[in-house]
């Protein structure tokens, strides 16, 4: 039971709003100690795991390119482009990206997207611009809400699209685990059963995006109580 103390520390630390790096490190050390390891072994294990996980941070390589393009007006261009399309609304822009992201992920093309590459420089500015064209300057709270929605669409699209592809890591993991337990399934059997949830994700989140449009209209459109 003591081995679960790390989980408590993580939950309490995040709820209390402490610096997550600190919380995670304390949780790792406490968990290791509770699991019967000594301090040096725990720190070594944490260091080894950190080193083995460096691939997670590779995504920051895109920053020089994105920053350089931002300096030259990439965001502004994305906004100008959307400003010219009169039927564009925040919800429609995000729904279109949701469909593209989910569709390409279902074909295994998960690298066509991402928060640093697509959402910050292109999708979020487009979604904001669509609202600005209609309603003028946005209150900060609305602006942040739209940006959060832009990030969410990227996640939801890829999570509930990728499992339809037969060679994606999660499908291979399910298959590998079942195989270890003496059950053999074909990847196609797994990916077929990801389709109903994928459709549900598109319907549910698509509806929420349309409702977002309505909420924006009500809050900022003509006749809105300010």
């Amino acid at each position: 039971m003591l081995t679960l103390s790390g989980i408590l520390i993580v939950v309490a630390g995040f709820v209390a709003g402490l610096n997550p790096l600190l919380v995670v490190t304390v949780a790792a050390i406490v968990t290791g100690l509770a699991g019967g390891l000594d301090v040096i072994t725990v720190i070594s294990a944490f260091g080894k795991a950190f080193n083995d996980s460096r691939y997670v941070s590779i995504v920051w390589l895109v920053l020089p390119v994105i920053g350089l393009l931002e300096r030259t007006g990439l965001k502004e261009r994305a906004q100008q482009l959307i400003g010219r399309i009169h039927s564009a609304t925040t919800g429609r822009v995000l729904l279109l990206y949701l469909i593209l992201r989910q569709g390409t992920a279902a074909l295994g093309l998960t690298s066509l997207g991402g928060h640093a590459q697509m959402v910050r420089p292109l999708i979020a500015p487009m979604a904001e611009a669509a609202a600005e064209t209609r309603f003028g300057t946005l209150p900060d709270a609305v602006r942040f809400k739209i940006r959060a929605h832009a990030a969410a669409v990227d996640n939801i699209g890829v999570f509930f699209g990728e499992d339809i592809f037969i060679a994606i890591a999660s499908v291979l993991l399910i298959r590998g685990f079942l195989h270890q337990n003496g059950i053999d399934v074909e990847p196609l059997q797994l990916s077929v059963w990801a389709i109903p949830t994928a459709i549900a994700a598109l319907l549910i989140h698509g509806t929420r995006l349309m409702l977002l449009d309505r909420r924006l209209q009500r809050a900022l459109g003509p006749g809105a109580a300010r």
Partner: peptide, 26 residues
């Protein structure tokens, strides 16, 4: 800022959890 290394740090925490047998208990 520091959030840039948080994902890597959490991956490392997951490895320590696995080492200590958290999954088994859960």
């Amino acid at each position: 800022g520091w959030a840039a290394v948080l994902p890597q740090m959490l991956a490392a925490l997951g490895a320590v959890f696995a080492l200590a047998g958290v999954g088994k208990v859960v």
